[in-house]
Simulated scan of single mutants.
Amino acid sequence: MRSCRYWIAGFLIALVVQAHAQTTQKVVDIPTRPGVTQRMLVLSPPEARAAVVLLAGGHGGLQIFPNGSFNWGAGNFLVRTRQLFADRGLMVAVVDAPSDRQSPPFLSGFRQRPEHAADIKAVIAWMREQSKVPVWLVGTSRGTQSAAYVATELAGPEGPDGIVLSSTILTDNRGRPVPAMPLEKIRVPVLVVHHEQDGCALCAFSNVPALMEKLGNSPRKELLSFKGGESRGDPCEAMAYHGFNGLEGEVVAQIAAWILAR
């Protein structure tokens, strides 16, 4: 019996190693607005079943180098789990700030502006053309303000096929939080992912029900909540419960399964 378990474990590890080996990675710059380009790190597994555009939190200025490394944000939940998404059969684009926002404050104060929607619209179109599969926006922390805003601004073939909001900004003293947006305009599936012990003052789990109530026009919505893991450092940063530290594999697996189940 023990040898059988070892064989199964070894087989699963071999599958993961094979998926890693077959995934290609490249840095892509696409034109968006006049004179502006959008850089992203793209991971392409063989025969992708869906595509995800990963929108990091914080100021969003990843400053992706040509070799695919990051000047900032490598530890962000979505950035550090990008390969896990690819291993689940998802084409991945990790999105940087656009070329005209490559210095402070980067995306701060920009996430709910028409120019940002135009940039992400171009990313969605490029991913859809390259992958020929549904394209989802996945935001974490401040990235949820990007994902939700774009989903309220773009619909049909211009917009995403669904969105995932992880560690959503539920209150905000510096701008409009996600629940204050016109979420009734969102008519695509919405998955909300939140840690019940999130210690960030802007993301209290007690405020999640109010968010869910405002997603009434979404054809499919669900809350996935998590407990446990490890919390280190600033409660609003990536190595705290806020960033699902220690739960990465489980969280990504459930997100991918939900996306692929539609």
Results as ranks from 00 to 15, higher is better:
M1Y: 08
R2I: 15
Y6F: 15
L12M: 14
V17A: 11
A21I: 02
Q25S: 13
V28S: 01
G35N: 04
P45E: 06
A50M: 03
G60W: 09
L62W: 14
Q63C: 06
P66W: 08
G68I: 06
G73S: 09
A74Y: 15
R82T: 11
F85G: 12
A86N: 15
D87T: 04
M91D: 03
V94T: 12
D96G: 09
S103L: 12
Q112P: 01
P114I: 05
P114K: 02
A118L: 05
D119K: 00
I124G: 08
V133L: 01
V133R: 10
W136D: 07
G139E: 07
R142N: 06
R142H: 07
T144L: 01
Q145N: 06
A147F: 11
V150Q: 07
A151T: 07
L154E: 11
E158N: 06
G159E: 04
G159F: 03
I163N: 08
S167K: 00
V178D: 14
P179G: 10
I186Q: 10
I186W: 11
P189F: 01
V190R: 06
L191Q: 08
V193W: 10
H194D: 11
E196G: 04
A201I: 06
L202W: 11
K214G: 08
L215D: 10
N217Y: 12
N217T: 09
S218T: 13
R220C: 00
R220V: 02
K221A: 08
K227I: 08
G228N: 00
E237A: 09
V251M: 15
